[in-house]
Design a protein around this nucleic acid. Structure first.
Length: 119
DNA sequence: CAGTTGACAGTCC
DNA sequence: GGGACTGCCAACT
């Protein structure tokens, strides 16, 4: 799947809805790697980073949602501790900025684990 | 059909 | 380095 979507084709609609496309991209993210919401949206040819997050909140329950992080190198809001368990399990490069007791005391090393569909 | 919401991003202070 | 404001896009009420 080199070109699952046509960002500016203007003549051929996507095979799936925006939500469906998001699910496909997120499902393609390999373990130990992460993508920002903006990157996922950009991969779809859209800029709705928030729209991507909304899809994850609804359908993400069946996907590796922890592989999709914010541009702040932070995991999804309200799921920092939950995502941390997966990061340690997949050996995702993290950067601790505080005590391990704090769930939001860590940030992802996007410089090392950032991934793209074409990579 | 218009307003509100939301697992966000980029820029300015 | 962190906090506040604005812009985006798609779905919900």
């Amino acid at each position: 799947m080199d070109a699952p979507l046509r960002p500016s084709a203007g003549d051929e609609p996507a095979p799936l809805d925006f939500g469906g496309a998001v699910l496909l991209v997120v499902a393609e993210i390999p373990p130990g790697r992460v993508m920002t919401y903006g990157d996922v949206a950009a991969a779809l040819g859209s800029r709705g980073a928030r729209a991507v997050g909304r899809v994850m909140a609804l359908e993400g329950s069946s996907l590796p949602w922890w592989r999709v992080v914010r541009a702040d190198a932070r995991p999804p809001a309200g799921h920092e501790a939950e995502a941390l368990e997966h990061y340690e399990q997949e050996a995702t490069p993290l950067r601790w900025t505080g005590p391990r007791g704090e769930p939001d005391a860590y940030r992802l090393d996007l410089a090392a684990c950032r991934w793209a569909p074409a990579d």
